[in-house]
Design a protein around this nucleic acid. Structure first.
Lengths: 109, 109
DNA sequence: TCTTCGTATATTGATAGTCTAGGTATTGGT
DNA sequence: ACCAATACCTAGACTATCAATATACGAAGA
Protein backbone atom coordinates (compact mmCIF):
# COMPACT_ATOMS: atom_id res chain seq x y z
CA UNK A 1 0.00 0.00 0.00
CA UNK A 2 1.13 3.52 -0.73
CA UNK A 3 2.58 5.74 1.91
CA UNK A 4 0.25 7.42 4.33
CA UNK A 5 -0.55 11.09 4.08
CA UNK A 6 -1.17 12.56 7.48
CA UNK A 7 -4.81 13.56 7.59
CA UNK A 8 -5.02 17.28 8.14
CA UNK A 9 -5.38 18.14 11.78
CA UNK A 10 -4.65 14.71 13.14
CA UNK A 11 -1.06 15.55 13.98
CA UNK A 12 -2.00 17.80 16.87
CA UNK A 13 -4.18 15.24 18.61
CA UNK A 14 -1.60 12.50 18.08
CA UNK A 15 1.14 14.63 19.60
CA UNK A 16 -1.02 15.57 22.57
CA UNK A 17 -1.89 11.92 23.06
CA UNK A 18 1.79 11.00 23.29
CA UNK A 19 2.60 13.86 25.66
CA UNK A 20 -0.28 12.88 27.92
CA UNK A 21 1.79 9.82 28.89
CA UNK A 22 5.15 11.51 29.35
CA UNK A 23 7.24 14.44 28.15
CA UNK A 24 8.95 13.76 24.85
CA UNK A 25 11.17 15.43 22.30
CA UNK A 26 10.26 15.74 18.64
CA UNK A 27 12.43 13.06 17.18
CA UNK A 28 11.22 10.68 19.84
CA UNK A 29 7.61 11.34 18.90
CA UNK A 30 8.26 10.28 15.33
CA UNK A 31 9.72 6.97 16.51
CA UNK A 32 7.07 6.46 19.17
CA UNK A 33 4.23 6.95 16.73
CA UNK A 34 5.81 4.45 14.39
CA UNK A 35 6.18 1.98 17.24
CA UNK A 36 2.61 2.37 18.49
CA UNK A 37 1.16 1.89 15.00
CA UNK A 38 3.40 -0.92 13.79
CA UNK A 39 5.05 1.46 11.35
CA UNK A 40 1.84 2.83 9.94
CA UNK A 41 1.96 6.42 11.19
CA UNK A 42 4.96 8.09 9.58
CA UNK A 43 5.10 11.62 10.89
CA UNK A 44 7.32 13.81 8.70
CA UNK A 45 9.59 16.23 10.53
CA UNK A 46 8.40 18.99 8.22
CA UNK A 47 4.93 18.28 9.55
CA UNK A 48 5.81 17.72 13.18
CA UNK A 49 7.90 20.77 14.04
CA UNK A 50 5.50 23.38 12.70
CA UNK A 51 2.72 21.52 14.53
CA UNK A 52 4.68 21.61 17.80
CA UNK A 53 5.27 25.34 17.40
CA UNK A 54 1.56 25.92 16.82
CA UNK A 55 0.73 23.91 19.93
CA UNK A 56 3.18 25.92 21.98
CA UNK A 57 1.93 29.21 20.54
CA UNK A 58 -1.58 28.17 21.59
CA UNK A 59 -0.48 27.20 25.09
CA UNK A 60 -1.27 23.51 24.72
CA UNK A 61 2.33 22.44 25.32
CA UNK A 62 5.45 24.03 26.75
CA UNK A 63 9.05 23.18 26.00
CA UNK A 64 12.40 22.97 27.72
CA UNK A 65 15.84 22.45 26.26
CA UNK A 66 17.83 19.68 27.82
CA UNK A 67 21.53 19.23 27.09
CA UNK A 68 22.59 15.65 26.50
CA UNK A 69 25.95 14.18 27.42
CA UNK A 70 26.25 12.51 24.04
CA UNK A 71 24.63 13.85 20.91
CA UNK A 72 22.69 16.98 20.06
CA UNK A 73 20.53 18.67 22.72
CA UNK A 74 16.88 17.80 22.99
CA UNK A 75 13.85 20.02 23.30
CA UNK A 76 11.41 18.31 25.61
CA UNK A 77 7.73 19.09 25.33
CA UNK A 78 5.24 18.97 28.20
CA UNK A 79 1.48 18.98 27.89
CA UNK A 80 -0.35 21.76 29.75
CA UNK A 81 -3.77 21.69 31.39
CA UNK A 82 -5.17 23.47 28.35
CA UNK A 83 -3.46 20.80 26.28
CA UNK A 84 -5.19 18.01 28.16
CA UNK A 85 -8.53 19.71 27.64
CA UNK A 86 -7.78 20.09 23.93
CA UNK A 87 -6.75 16.44 23.79
CA UNK A 88 -10.08 15.31 25.19
CA UNK A 89 -11.97 17.57 22.82
CA UNK A 90 -9.90 16.56 19.81
CA UNK A 91 -9.95 12.87 20.68
CA UNK A 92 -13.73 12.97 20.97
CA UNK A 93 -14.06 14.60 17.57
CA UNK A 94 -11.62 12.29 15.84
CA UNK A 95 -13.18 9.25 17.48
CA UNK A 96 -16.64 10.23 16.28
CA UNK A 97 -15.29 10.97 12.84
CA UNK A 98 -13.40 7.68 12.62
CA UNK A 99 -16.34 5.63 13.79
CA UNK A 100 -18.66 7.41 11.37
CA UNK A 101 -16.31 6.82 8.48
CA UNK A 102 -15.76 3.17 9.36
CA UNK A 103 -19.51 2.70 9.46
CA UNK A 104 -19.94 4.40 6.10
CA UNK A 105 -17.13 2.40 4.50
CA UNK A 106 -17.99 -0.87 6.18
CA UNK A 107 -17.63 -3.76 3.77
CA UNK A 108 -16.10 -1.71 0.95
CA UNK A 109 -12.39 -2.12 1.55
CA UNK B 1 -20.33 19.08 20.22
CA UNK B 2 -18.96 21.61 17.78
CA UNK B 3 -19.57 21.35 14.08
CA UNK B 4 -17.50 18.91 12.11
CA UNK B 5 -14.77 20.03 9.78
CA UNK B 6 -14.41 17.67 6.88
CA UNK B 7 -11.08 15.93 7.18
CA UNK B 8 -8.99 16.70 4.15
CA UNK B 9 -9.38 14.06 1.49
CA UNK B 10 -12.28 12.23 3.05
CA UNK B 11 -14.83 13.91 0.81
CA UNK B 12 -13.75 12.01 -2.29
CA UNK B 13 -14.05 8.59 -0.70
CA UNK B 14 -17.40 9.46 0.87
CA UNK B 15 -18.80 10.60 -2.45
CA UNK B 16 -17.54 7.50 -4.23
CA UNK B 17 -19.06 5.34 -1.51
CA UNK B 18 -22.48 6.90 -2.08
CA UNK B 19 -22.26 6.60 -5.86
CA UNK B 20 -21.29 2.95 -5.56
CA UNK B 21 -24.88 2.29 -4.46
CA UNK B 22 -26.68 4.42 -7.03
CA UNK B 23 -26.28 7.54 -9.18
CA UNK B 24 -26.93 10.73 -7.25
CA UNK B 25 -26.90 14.49 -7.72
CA UNK B 26 -24.90 16.81 -5.51
CA UNK B 27 -27.61 18.16 -3.30
CA UNK B 28 -28.84 14.63 -2.72
CA UNK B 29 -25.39 13.55 -1.56
CA UNK B 30 -25.38 16.22 1.13
CA UNK B 31 -28.72 15.00 2.47
CA UNK B 32 -27.80 11.33 2.11
CA UNK B 33 -24.57 11.76 4.04
CA UNK B 34 -26.45 13.50 6.81
CA UNK B 35 -29.01 10.70 6.89
CA UNK B 36 -26.42 7.91 6.96
CA UNK B 37 -24.50 9.55 9.80
CA UNK B 38 -27.44 10.73 11.92
CA UNK B 39 -26.62 14.32 11.05
CA UNK B 40 -22.94 14.07 11.83
CA UNK B 41 -21.40 14.46 8.37
CA UNK B 42 -22.26 17.93 7.12
CA UNK B 43 -20.80 18.29 3.68
CA UNK B 44 -20.59 21.94 2.64
CA UNK B 45 -21.56 22.74 -0.93
CA UNK B 46 -18.37 24.75 -1.32
CA UNK B 47 -16.54 21.54 -0.49
CA UNK B 48 -18.66 19.13 -2.48
CA UNK B 49 -18.85 20.74 -5.90
CA UNK B 50 -15.12 21.30 -6.35
CA UNK B 51 -14.61 17.72 -5.18
CA UNK B 52 -17.09 16.41 -7.75
CA UNK B 53 -15.34 18.35 -10.50
CA UNK B 54 -12.00 16.90 -9.47
CA UNK B 55 -13.44 13.40 -9.50
CA UNK B 56 -14.86 13.96 -12.97
CA UNK B 57 -11.62 15.49 -14.22
CA UNK B 58 -9.82 12.38 -12.97
CA UNK B 59 -12.30 10.03 -14.62
CA UNK B 60 -13.62 8.56 -11.39
CA UNK B 61 -17.17 9.74 -12.04
CA UNK B 62 -19.13 10.98 -15.04
CA UNK B 63 -22.15 13.26 -15.02
CA UNK B 64 -25.37 13.78 -16.91
CA UNK B 65 -27.86 16.64 -16.73
CA UNK B 66 -31.42 15.62 -16.16
CA UNK B 67 -34.29 18.09 -16.53
CA UNK B 68 -36.91 17.88 -13.82
CA UNK B 69 -40.61 18.60 -14.27
CA UNK B 70 -40.65 20.79 -11.17
CA UNK B 71 -37.68 22.67 -9.83
CA UNK B 72 -34.15 23.25 -11.10
CA UNK B 73 -32.44 20.61 -13.25
CA UNK B 74 -30.18 18.05 -11.62
CA UNK B 75 -26.74 16.88 -12.57
CA UNK B 76 -26.55 13.17 -11.87
CA UNK B 77 -23.19 11.58 -11.17
CA UNK B 78 -22.25 7.99 -11.99
CA UNK B 79 -19.24 6.12 -10.67
CA UNK B 80 -16.87 4.67 -13.27
CA UNK B 81 -14.78 1.51 -13.12
CA UNK B 82 -11.77 3.63 -12.26
CA UNK B 83 -13.91 5.22 -9.56
CA UNK B 84 -14.72 1.85 -8.04
CA UNK B 85 -11.05 0.98 -7.98
CA UNK B 86 -10.25 4.32 -6.33
CA UNK B 87 -13.02 3.70 -3.83
CA UNK B 88 -11.51 0.39 -2.78
CA UNK B 89 -8.06 1.92 -2.51
CA UNK B 90 -9.29 4.97 -0.62
CA UNK B 91 -11.56 2.97 1.66
CA UNK B 92 -8.68 0.69 2.57
CA UNK B 93 -6.46 3.65 3.43
CA UNK B 94 -9.10 5.48 5.44
CA UNK B 95 -10.08 2.29 7.24
CA UNK B 96 -6.49 1.62 8.26
CA UNK B 97 -6.07 5.21 9.31
CA UNK B 98 -9.29 5.27 11.32
CA UNK B 99 -8.52 2.00 13.07
CA UNK B 100 -5.01 3.18 13.88
CA UNK B 101 -6.25 6.45 15.28
CA UNK B 102 -8.99 4.80 17.33
CA UNK B 103 -6.38 2.48 18.79
CA UNK B 104 -4.07 5.37 19.61
CA UNK B 105 -6.86 7.43 21.17
CA UNK B 106 -8.54 4.52 22.92
CA UNK B 107 -9.68 5.53 26.38
CA UNK B 108 -8.86 9.20 26.00
CA UNK B 109 -12.14 10.67 24.83
C1' DT C 1 -48.03 41.13 -5.50
C1' DC C 2 -44.17 40.49 -2.83
C1' DT C 3 -41.36 37.87 -0.07
C1' DT C 4 -39.43 33.90 1.63
C1' DC C 5 -38.18 29.22 1.76
C1' DG C 6 -36.41 24.86 -0.16
C1' DT C 7 -34.26 23.01 -4.09
C1' DA C 8 -29.99 22.86 -7.01
C1' DT C 9 -25.59 24.16 -9.14
C1' DA C 10 -21.53 26.89 -8.91
C1' DT C 11 -17.43 30.20 -7.92
C1' DT C 12 -14.35 33.20 -5.27
C1' DG C 13 -10.98 34.35 -1.74
C1' DA C 14 -9.01 33.26 2.56
C1' DT C 15 -7.03 29.97 5.49
C1' DA C 16 -4.59 26.16 7.24
C1' DG C 17 -1.94 21.97 7.35
C1' DT C 18 1.11 18.77 4.84
C1' DC C 19 4.85 17.65 1.81
C1' DT C 20 9.36 17.94 -0.38
C1' DA C 21 13.60 19.63 -0.05
C1' DG C 22 16.87 21.73 1.99
C1' DG C 23 19.94 23.42 6.08
C1' DT C 24 22.79 23.02 10.73
C1' DA C 25 25.17 20.37 14.22
C1' DT C 26 26.97 16.32 17.13
C1' DT C 27 28.48 11.62 17.80
C1' DG C 28 30.05 6.98 16.68
C1' DG C 29 31.52 3.52 13.42
C1' DT C 30 34.14 2.04 9.24
C1' DA D 1 38.13 10.88 6.05
C1' DC D 2 33.59 9.67 5.40
C1' DC D 3 28.97 8.34 6.40
C1' DA D 4 24.88 7.22 9.09
C1' DA D 5 21.95 8.22 12.92
C1' DT D 6 20.49 11.58 15.96
C1' DA D 7 18.13 16.10 16.63
C1' DC D 8 16.61 20.56 15.63
C1' DC D 9 14.61 23.78 12.06
C1' DT D 10 12.59 26.61 7.80
C1' DA D 11 10.90 27.86 3.02
C1' DG D 12 7.98 27.28 -0.78
C1' DA D 13 4.57 24.77 -3.20
C1' DC D 14 0.44 22.49 -3.03
C1' DT D 15 -4.23 21.17 -1.94
C1' DA D 16 -8.57 20.83 0.25
C1' DT D 17 -11.64 23.09 3.16
C1' DC D 18 -14.48 26.93 4.59
C1' DA D 19 -17.50 31.14 4.46
C1' DA D 20 -19.73 33.94 1.57
C1' DT D 21 -21.92 34.90 -2.44
C1' DA D 22 -24.40 34.28 -6.93
C1' DT D 23 -27.92 32.42 -10.01
C1' DA D 24 -32.47 30.28 -10.90
C1' DC D 25 -36.95 27.77 -10.21
C1' DG D 26 -41.38 26.63 -7.77
C1' DA D 27 -44.44 26.74 -3.93
C1' DA D 28 -46.47 28.68 0.04
C1' DG D 29 -47.94 32.48 2.59
C1' DA D 30 -48.69 37.47 3.84
Amino acid sequence: MSKLDMRTGSTAVMVLRLLADEPMYGYQMVKELQARSDGYFELEQGTLYPALHRLERDGLVRSEWQPIAEGPPRKYYYITDAGRAALHEGAAQWTDFSRGLLKLLDGVA
